[in-house]
Structures are given as structure tokens and as C-alpha cells.
């Protein structure tokens, strides 16, 4: 029995571990969300939380119901497969109640460059231009109709387009 007595201090150190573990477990019980692990290695309640996020995008079908003219132009043009909201931004609020907010027109000088700036990383077939060279600083919409961008493909191209394009502003 004296052997145990002489090893008593070791048990005290062990006790330290037990206490540390209990404290850890206590804190853990307190900080880990209740629904953690319900379905997997994440907070189960996160699913409803995320589902409750307000919808931000309306989808192009919604836009097309009201803006039929633009939808018609677009489906015939090169941007047929580019979604309205890819350019206009999330507009669910507008689609639900058009009077509640009027969307700002995108600034084509910035917008178009986002997709069409020439870069070696893009597939060869994708239309891309050296922006500074190509547009001379003009907004792209001066010459291109954003909804049907190939020049000459659409009669309703902005008036300035034919004029500027004719002077050889572009290459």
C-alpha cells in the first residue's frame, strides 16, 4: 500500500487531466450548436437558416414575361445564352414589384470588359478584345446593342453605333 502512497502525486497530476477534460467537455457542451451532427458534420439548423435567405435572383423567365421586346432581341443575338441577371445583377425585388425599385442601367464600359477582356486563360473560341485598343474608351453600348451585340445583326442598334463604327473607331 505504501507504493500507492508514494505514487500519490502522480494521481494528482492525473486529476489535473480529468479536470481539464471535464472543463473542456463543459465548454464544448455550451458552445457546440444543439443541432450539430443532426445530419452530418455540420449544424443541422443551418439548412433552414439558409433556406430562409430571401431569394435574390428572379431568373430570366421572369424578366421575359414583362420585357418581351428585349427577350425577343436577345434570343436572336449572340447573348442568347447569357442570363439577364448576369449583366443586370440580382433583381428579384424588381421582378416581384417593378414599381418598388427601378434597376440602374449597367455601365457597359465596365460590364462588358468583365467577360470580354482578352486573356490567355480563356478558350480560344471565346470572343475577346483588347479593351483599350478596341473601344477607344467609349462605352461598349455606343456601338454594340448589349442585348444583341453582333454589329449589324440588329436594326435597333443604338444610333451612335453605325456612325462611330463607320468612321473606323473600331478594329
Amino acid at each position: 500500500m505504501s507504493g500507492l502512497k508514494d505514487a500519490g502525486h502522480l494521481f494528482r497530476f492525473l486529476g489535473l487531466f480529468v479536470i481539464a477534460f471535464l472543463v473542456f467537455w463543459l465548454i464544448r457542451g455550451y458552445v457546440v450548436p444543439k443541432s450539430f451532427g443532426e445530419y452530418g458534420h455540420y449544424r443541422g439548423a443551418a439548412i433552414t437558416d439558409i433556406a430562409n435567405h430571401p431569394v435574390k435572383f428572379a431568373g430570366h423567365q421572369a424578366c421575359e414575361q414583362c420585357h418581351t421586346d428585349i427577350a425577343d432581341t436577345k434570343t436572336k443575338g449572340a447573348h442568347a445564352h447569357v442570363n439577364c441577371e448576369a449583366c443586370h445583377g440580382a433583381l428579384a425585388q424588381h421582378a416581384n414589384d417593378p414599381t418598388s425599385m427601378t434597376p440602374v442601367k449597367p455601365d457597359s464600359a465596365v460590364l462588358c470588359a468583365r467577360c470580354h477582356t482578352a486573356s490567355a486563360a480563356k478558350p480560344k473560341g471565346f470572343p475577346q478584345v483588347d479593351i483599350a485598343d478596341h473601344s477607344n474608351g467609349l462605352p461598349c453600348a455606343t456601338c454594340h446593342n448589349p442585348h444583341s451585340p453582333v454589329i449589324g445583326s440588329d436594326a435597333k442598334t443604338t444610333d451612335a453605333a453605325s456612325a462611330t463604327a463607320a468612321t473606323g473607331g473600331a478594329k
Binding site: 502512497k5 508514494d6 500519490g8 502525486h9 497530476f13 486529476g15
Partner: peptide, 8 residues
């Protein structure tokens, strides 16, 4: 010392 003075 963790309360143990045993240094036998």
C-alpha cells in the same frame, strides 16, 4: 506541487 510534498 499540486499539494503533494512527498519527496521520499
Amino acid at each position: 506541487t499540486l499539494g503533494s510534498n512527498n519527496i521520499s
